[in-house]
């Protein structure tokens, strides 16, 4: 993981939850790596990383664009024409997922409505599965490419809203496999590639996964949060890393970049 070079010494005092998430996401990205980005905050995070410590980050969008520069304002979709500006290679969905399956993608950003202790995600339905699959209580949009990224990216970073009803011991439906049941070689035995989720970023904490049990653990608390407050918003027991620390708030420069250069019209980063 990147040692975040703290070039900007002054911390911002005024920042929104989504700006905190974007900053945390950007700081997890290593320079010169290939990042598969979904719509929304990951697009802001990648651009922020490119403008700070990661000028040689290579974004890939599932619509088919490889290595573009997002200089036409933020895309509204992973199939947006804005994902193609100055791209090195453009094909289609088969191509971008074949790249993923082959192993070209280092990091995938994915999200979901529910997450369990092993980083498995649900973005399909709320209700009884399989009984009520055809008529769920709430139908969510579906896998899209998340189910593919979770299967084949070298590792994934999850962004989930930190609420009790979303951090659950058991998912109502598993759309994107993480560490499955946490057993050794669970992913390999299921036919999956890649190492699964490495980080979970929320407005309350930066989390990772225990090497042995593959259960989620708190690595750092976000500004203003404590282990207790993070646990109180989580529907399962979180482990706590022995080197727990308090996450550095966004710097003034990071916030300036987000507000002035990356997302001035607040498409994704609400203030």
């Amino acid at each position: 993981m990147t040692e975040y070079a703290n070039d900007f010494s002054e911390y911002a005092t005024d920042f929104s939850p989504s700006e905190m998430i974007v900053t945390a996401g950007a700081r997890q990205l290593e320079n010169k790596k290939v990042i598969f980005a979904g719509t929304g905050l990951p697009m802001v995070g990648i651009t922020l990383a490119q403008l700070t410590h990661g000028p040689d980050i290579i974004p890939v969008f599932e619509g088919g664009a490889v290595g573009p520069t997002l200089n036409r304002s933020l895309p509204l979709s992973v199939g947006d024409s804005r994902t193609t500006s100055k791209a090195n290679f453009i094909q289609g969905l088969n191509s971008s997922f074949e790249l993923t399956q082959r192993g070209f993608i280092d990091v995938g950003f994915i999200g979901g409505a529910e997450v369990d202790p092993y980083g498995n995600l649900n973005s399909t339905m709320i209700g009884n599965f399989p009984e009520n699959y055809m008529n769920p209580d709430i139908r969510l949009p579906g896998s899209g490419g998340a189910g593919d990224m979770s299967c084949s990216c070298t590792y994934t970073i999850l962004i989930v809203q930190h609420e009790l009803r979303r951090f659950v011991e058991e998912l109502q439906y598993m759309t994107s496999p993480g560490h499955l049941d946490g057993s050794p070689d669970a992913r390999k035995n299921a036919g999956l590639q890649g190492k699964g989720p490495r980080r979970v970023i929320t407005t309350k904490a930066l989390m990772g996964f225990d090497d042995e049990t593959k259960r989620m653990k708190i690595l750092a608390t976000m500004p203003g949060e404590t282990v207790e407050s993070v646990q109180a918003a989580t529907g399962f027991e979180l482990l706590v890393d022995e080197n727990l620390y308090e996450f550095e708030p966004p710097t003034k420069e990071e916030i300036r970049l987000i507000r002035e250069d990356i997302d001035p019209t607040q498409i994704y980063c609400k203030r």
Binding site: F97, Q101, N120, T124, F129, P130, S143, G147, D148, C151, S152, Y173, M174, T175, S176, P177, L180, R187, A190, G191, L192, Q193
Partner: peptide, 9 residues
């Protein structure tokens, strides 16, 4: 394919 396996899909 190596996609869409392991979960409920």
């Amino acid at each position: 394919t190596r996609s869409g396996l392991g979960g409920d899909i």
